[in-house]
Design a binder for these strands. Structure first.
Lengths: 269, 269
DNA sequence: CGACGTGTTGATCTCTCTCAATTAGAGTGG
DNA sequence: CCACTCTAATTGAGAGAGATCAACACGTCG
């Protein structure tokens, strides 16, 4: 129930010498991955866990606001976001920046670029964050050794695309108010799904208004004004780094979200 | 050399009774797939071809402007665009439409929605088109029976996402002129890569200005005015359903495209 | 305490949208 | 062969959402 208690069946931190453990030392073993405890994730078999474990190289921790991958960087490894928030972005040569998507625990990073290729987008943290690092070949190995996991990755990748699709719809066709409503709801749902201790008391919300602006194709000033407008109207509230949706109904109507902006259950660790 | 001669080694239309041929009759066999002839695609082994062939259910032909998948439709099968142009789109309840991406021969359709799920976007043809239809399970079967093909699909899916990323950057941060320049270049490159008989005489270009507008988050009127402006400036020309890039250099500079908007070589049939 | 990063607000400015009208082509039916 | 209809492309004019420019308030931090 409580996500702070990661282990499921055996001793929490006592990692057995898995045949395949290579370069990960102070790191948490996959079997103790905190994400496993969440109902959001499909439970992989022990075999699959061992496979993932064997492909994992190490962990990497970054403070808030640091770069995980620089735009144009070559040979970036494959990552999994274990903990914290981050975002993918692209910039034009004159500095205009577009955030492509926000990344939460469990998200994959770097499937996009083909090996040897330059990263098509940068990745930066929003909070202190923790990543699992995989060798570039891991993607292929995973497919080769476990078609099931490979299939899951395809599905995850497709799901990730559908989120970008949603953003594109927003940025292309929604007004500033609608975009913001839509973003807040979607992020709220995703974040809430990750914190079992959820409830009506909001979620931790590390974005600055600049991030919201860059994620929605708006200017900072206009984002601020729109945000204030919605807040004064009682739809939501952001304070002390937390986001509260005060009137989800109105917010959803404004965003014109189908159903509820479902955070589809995700397979894989 | 000439794409109009699809077969590679044996008799063109004489299809041997592959053990797995199920419901495809007047259809072209995978081994004779015209796409195979293009340098753009990686040559799959005979075994892989047979596998794809065995999963293929039938073909479907649509005239220009018809719907392949309706938004919200459930249980849509998996498709491959064999011939022609199409596009994926989403609409808001009041009718505003955003085209998410344009589809050309070789593109996959429908990997996004999980089985049983409602399609997150619609797909419509721009020209008369031809699709290969696969059973929904094909995706899994492909992964199971050929990790290599599975891997390719993941890569294709990721590549497709990176194209949406590019569009999002455009729509979110580029001016109308820049968006149009960027779209024209990208489509030109993709289409040119598919017609070996390319050359400087442009490409067949089936989009109406409304499609361009919906693909770039612009209004029809403003799209028209911007298009005319670029045309008068000698950057490009669209006439009789063909697009000519008269000044690629200036166009690319305007679009602020890195390198040249590379149409990365794609694996798989 | 000054430098910064982030959030606010007011005052223009302008790019893009909306409304309206017209032209040109492709079909259709008489 | 011609009126009639429809779709796509054009252009002009006015309106407006959102951008840009400028200040200022606050809290954190070296």
């Amino acid at each position: 129930m409580d996500a702070s208690t990661p282990a499921t069946d055996d001793a929490p931190e006592q990692v057995p010498a898995a045949a395949s453990r290579a370069a990960n030392d102070g790191d948490t073993a996959c079997r103790n991955c905190p994400l496993r405890a969440l109902p959001l994730f499909i439970e992989p078999s022990g075999e699959e866990l061992a496979l993932v474990q064997s492909l994992k190289r190490r962990e990497r921790r970054l403070a808030a606001g640091e770069a995980l991958i620089h735009e144009g960087q070559t040979d970036a490894p494959l990552y999994t976001l274990l903990q914290g928030w981050a975002f993918r972005y692209k910039t034009l040569s004159d500095g205009r920046r577009q955030i492509l998507s926000f990344l939460l625990a469990g998200d994959f990073i770097g499937v996009q670029q083909k090996m040897g290729d330059a990263a098509a987008h940068g990745v930066e943290t929003l909070t202190d964050a923790q990543f699992c690092v995989f060798h570039r070949d891991a993607l292929w190995e995973l497919h080769r050794q476990s078609p099931m996991m490979g299939f899951n990755i395809t599905w995850l990748t497709a799901h990730e695309e559908s989120m970008v699709d949603d953003t594109l719809l927003s940025v292309g066709r929604r007004s500033a108010e609608e975009r913001i409503a839509s973003l807040l709801i979607l992020l709220f749902k995703r974040a809430a799904a990750l914190q079992p201790d959820a409830g009506a008391d909001g979620i931790a919300f590390p974005l600055t208004q600049q991030h919201i602006a860059d994620g929605l194709g708006l200017s900072l000033v206009h984002t601020n004004k729109t945000l204030r407008k919605l807040e004064r109207r009682g739809l939501h509230q952001i304070s002390n780094g937390r986001l509260y949706l005060r009137d989800l109904k109105s917010m959803a109507r404004l965003a014109d979200l189908y159903g509820d902006g479902r955070p589809a259950p995700r397979p894989l660790v």
